[in-house]
Design a protein around this nucleic acid. Sequence first.
DNA 1: ATGTCACCTGGTAGGTGA
Length: 255
Amino acid sequence: MKLATWNVNSLAVRLPQLLDWLAAQQPDVLVLQETKLTDDKFPHADIAAAGWQAVWHGQKTYNGVALLARSAPTDVVKNIPGLDDPQARVIAATVAGVRVIGAYFPNGQAPGTEKFAYKMGWLEALRAWVQDELTRHPRLVLMGDYNIAPDDRDVFDPVAWAGQIHCTDEERAHFQGLCGLGLVDAFRLFEQAPRTWSWWDYRNLAFRKNQGLRIDHILVSQALQAQVAACQVDKAPRKNERPSDHAPVWVELTG
DNA sequence: ATGTCACCTGGTAGGTGA
C-alpha cells in the first residue's frame, strides 16, 4: 500500500501535474494541501475519471485539503473535532483499514506573532485529537505539510535558520510530542541521501542550489511500523516548468 | 541579488500569505 502527501500550492494551477503524478506513481492514498479552492470548485470529475475517489475540504484563497484514494474513504472527518477553526487544514478518513489524517499545519509566520500563537494552539489540539484517534484506530498515518523541520539535518543552512520559523524549539517540541504518541517519522527509518528536502523557496534560485527544508512528513503509528518498506521524497514534480514549491513524499507499506 | 508564485480586490497595480 502506497500513501503519499503533496502540497500542490493551488490545485487549479496544478491539476494537470496531479493527474500526471497519479498516473505515474499509482498511490493508494494521496493527501493534498493548499488546494485553495472552495468545495464547489473541486475538480472531482477529472479525479474520478482518472480512477480515484476523493473527499475534500476547502475554502476561498487559502489552505484547503483533500484526500484521494483508490478504494472508498470512510468515516470522513474535516478539521480537528472540537477546535473552532475557520481555516480548512485537516481531512481524515479510513482507507483499506488504515486511518489516514492529511493535514496542512499552520505556517506560523515568525516567533512572537499572532500566527505563531495560532500554530501552537493548533498543534496542541492536533496532538490531543491524534492521541484520541489512536485509541480507536491503532493503524494510523499522519501526513502532510507540517511546516516544521524536525532536526538540523532537515535544514539546508541550520545556522542561518536557527530559531527561525519552522526551526524553533517550540515547533520541534510539538513534533516530538507527536512522536511521543508512538508515531515515527517514516523517512528516518531508512538511510537517505544527505540534503534531501521537500520544499524549496520559489525565490533565490533555491531549487537550483538545492537550498530547502524537509517540512513535509509521514508519521506512522506503532502498529504499522513493521510494515514500512520505503519512504522517499519525489523531487521530479519540482522540476516541472510551473511547479509547486513542495515535492510529494510517499511511503510504502507491505501487506 | 532586493532574485517567486498565487490569489484577492479592483483595475490595468498593489496587498497578502507563503
